[in-house]
Simulated scan of single mutants.
Amino acid sequence: MSTATDPVADFEAQRPRLFGLAYRLLGSAQDAEDAVQDAWLRWSGADHAAVASPAAWLTTALTRLCLTRLTSARTRRETYVGPWLPEPILTTDPAVGPAETAAQRESVSLALLVTLERLTPLERAVYVLREAFGHTHAEVAAILGVTEAHSRQLHTRARKHLAEAPAGQPETDAAAWGALVERFLAAAREGEIAELEALLAADVAAWSDGGGRVSAARRPVVGRAAVARFLAGVFAKFTTGLEARVGEVNGEPAILALRDGELTSVLAVARSGSQVTGLRFVLNPDKLAFLGGQLSRSGGLSGHSS
């Protein structure tokens, strides 16, 4: 039997973790918020006296709600205009769940969230519950309503699929990464093609998500020279009134562009060592709304403006 006396307090104590789980499962901050709200509605109608562990009950309810949402989300993404990228979030915000360890930050990176789209809903749930939240296979099996052996099989298949399209190794040197992004931003802003090419890996790729709402490249730009020219063209549009700031987005340094205080784009920068290996531009205004709200609540970002 539960020893809790306040179901509302129980839920609010779990809310950040629930959002972090839903976001990793869905790749959408707005959908994650909706799923957490649906979990609250179910919790409101539960027999709380019969619940031994509110955390376990809520994790199970939320995960199953997300599995249903994943099926419909996949159908929507099949008709998405241009490359699909997850909604970016500020991971320095404690309201969005755990991002303390390198593994937790890597599990919320845009690169990995894109790669998780390769998995079936059940594979994705097992992977997230195991890798990001540390649940045992016995716990995962209970959450998903499968056998422990099946949970292990799903985890093995998930890791195999992800190995076929690696998202990169989690970085631990945040200072070096931040310095690389600042150097990259300076070169892009000045249109220094040679400096950009020196910073870009030979097989670097850039993806742009405008969702048909704003102008964006419909296909990935691949290769050092092509990406350098692409970047110079993009940053040439930076004019008076548009600022570029560096902040931590999805556990990694990113460049945020703002006009008159309003967020207009996010550029996540993936690296390996001293080179940039991937660039992900999120320009779809629908996908910037959540992060824009985070910025408003936090009073903005520290960093250098352009």
Rank of each mutant, 00 (worst) to 15 (best):
L200W: 13
L200M: 14
L200T: 13
L200S: 14
L200P: 14
A201W: 01
A201P: 04
A201M: 12
A201L: 12
A202R: 11
A202Y: 09
D203G: 11
D203E: 15
D203N: 13
D203P: 03
D203C: 09
D203Q: 14
V204Y: 10
V204D: 15
V204R: 03
V204S: 09
A205W: 05
A205R: 02
A205V: 14
A205C: 14
A205F: 09
A206T: 00
A206L: 08
A206W: 05
A206K: 00
W207R: 02
W207E: 15
W207L: 10
W207H: 09
W207F: 13
W207N: 05
S208R: 03
S208T: 07
S208L: 08
S208Y: 05
S208M: 06
D209T: 12
D209P: 08
D209K: 15
D209V: 07
D209S: 13
D209I: 11
D209G: 09
G210W: 06
G210L: 15
G210V: 14
G210R: 15
G210A: 15
G210F: 08
G211T: 10
G211W: 04
G211Y: 03
G211F: 00
G211I: 06
G211H: 07
G212A: 12
G212S: 10
G212P: 11
G212Q: 09
G212V: 11
G212I: 11
R213V: 03
R213M: 02
R213D: 06
R213Q: 07
V214L: 05
V214Y: 01
V214K: 02
V214F: 04
V214I: 02
S215D: 08
S215A: 12
S215I: 14
S215H: 05
S215V: 13
S215Q: 08
S215W: 08
A216Y: 00
A216H: 05
A216F: 01
A216K: 08
A216T: 11
A216V: 13
A216I: 14
A217Y: 04
A217M: 07
A217F: 02
A217N: 04
A217R: 05
A217H: 00
A217Q: 06
R218F: 00
R218S: 03
R218V: 00
R218M: 00
R218G: 01
R218D: 00
R219H: 05
R219E: 00
R219Q: 03
R219I: 02
P220N: 14
P220Y: 08
P220V: 07
V221D: 10
V221L: 10
V222F: 06
V222P: 01
V222A: 09
V222C: 06
G223T: 02
G223Y: 04
G223L: 03
G223C: 04
G223N: 07
G223K: 01
G223R: 01
G223D: 02
G223P: 02
G223H: 04
R224M: 05
R224E: 13
R224T: 07
A225E: 02
A225K: 06
A225P: 06
A225D: 10
A226L: 11
A226C: 11
A226V: 11
A226K: 09
A226F: 12
A226Y: 12
V227E: 07
V227W: 01
V227G: 05
A228T: 07
A228D: 05
A228Y: 03
A228S: 12
A228V: 10
R229H: 07
R229T: 04
R229S: 04
F230I: 01
F230Y: 00
F230S: 06
F230D: 06
